[in-house]
Nucleic acid binder design. Structure first.
Lengths: 222, 222
DNA sequence: TTTTGTGAATTGCTTCACAGCA
DNA sequence: TGCTGTGAAGCAATTCACAAAA
């Protein structure tokens, strides 16, 4: 039986996504089975790491054979919860918001954006490219729409200054998860999960590693 | 004196970016000094964590007082390497590529995109909105442009199938870092740093936590 | 007093190495 | 033989708790 989620290291859950992606690549190359060693090499991880990560959730492998690709893909989707559809809404239709409305990756992972909100009165009622059935709604309709369409996830694409207010509104409306694109650290209560996508943070991590490399090159011995 | 970079835990470096962002917020609220406790609370971290993270890089605090906001901001920028300008190029001008060309956050963090490439012949020579000085160049000009403009970083916005090839071209041309937006795990040699931005992975992490929460609600006792 | 910086203790994660199965 | 699943060992990160500084 699978372990309780709270005993699984967070990094292991993160790698589950990478395993799934790599397995999908193997599958489109018509590979039937894969060993922990092969999977690890493709992702620059050790075979032991792969086995231990998967073992947190159950026994999916076949000794002497490896893992059956299609079987493991199916199991990973169940574990990650992307075998069921998740409905989402998006708030803030600036540059980024519009780009995300166009993004096809959501549907590939079984997410569907079913509503879009903005507080700018000039945008209200506007159509959204490639989305004939949707228009931009005013913030006042959020509560009703979330309940009516049973929306589970909210995407925040507004400026940092108003991001916390929007998060609070979403939570009040009944959303269970938030994906935050604003460069600010949001507070959410218990029973709400939050994840942030922050390009500035990624850039700084790269900048740091670039300078570290530079330093190693100029003064090899400390 | 600051410790050698290789002895610093990676999660600590990651949090440095969060500290910097929060300090900038404190600064625009005219706060002069901040304690590790205040900084930690704003980011949902312990005070001990904040102090230890900062101590990896030197002694910036003042016992009984805390940290001077402007001083710490300056030091963090130096440590992260965003006090100096980093030149970058972007490859792949689809939806995402164009959105990133518009994104102002790069300049705020002292990154500058100075060249854009695409292999599609119909896009070559096209102007880029808000970028009067740049046109889309063919891939064959990459080597020369990287050397001429001393480009340090490459952004990959091409489909997964060709992302590794583009990465290899970039490295051959002399780039030192890569920010990959394609949903694939890239291999780069030593002396090149790589970081990936993958929305699909983030979505799956959220989906997992959403189902975990659901399970906790339905069966509180394991 | 307040608050830092830091060894020591603790917790968590990864790697090792091997029994058991196909 | 080849490969998984897993305790045990080893390593890494976080938290504790307190001396020292202002």
């Amino acid at each position: 039986m699978a372990k309780a989620e709270n005993s699984v290291p967070a990094p292991a859950v993160r790698r589950l996504s990478l395993y799934l992606r790599q397995l999908e690549a193997f599958q489109s190359n018509n590979l039937q089975t894969v060993s922990s060693k092969q999977l690890g090499q493709a992702l620059s991880l050790s075979d032991a790491q792969v086995r231990k990560d998967l073992a947190y959730f159950g026994q999916f492998g076949h000794p002497g054979v490896g893992y059956r690709v299609s079987e493991l893909i199916e199991r990973l989707r169940q574990i990650l919860g992307t075998d069921r559809k998740t409905t989402a809404m998006l708030v803030g239709l600036g540059n980024l918001g519009h780009a995300l409305m166009q993004y096809r990756g959501f549907n590939k992972k079984n997410f569907e954006i079913v509503a879009a909100f903005d507080k700018d009165p000039t945008k209200l009622g506007q159509a959204i490219p490639d989305r004939p059935a949707m228009t931009i709604q005013p913030m006042t309709e959020m509560l009703e729409t979330v309940n009516h369409l049973n929306i589970k996830l909210g995407l925040i694409c507004v400026p940092a200054e108003v991001a916390q207010d929007v998060a609070d509104m979403m939570i009040t409306a009944g959303v269970r998860g938030i994906l935050n694109f604003a460069p600010i650290s949001l507070k959410v209560g218990p029973n709400v999960v939050m994840s942030s996508v922050d390009l500035a943070v990624q850039l700084e991590q790269l900048a740091f590693q670039l300078s570290a490399m530079q330093n190693r090159a100029t003064e090899p011995r400390q």
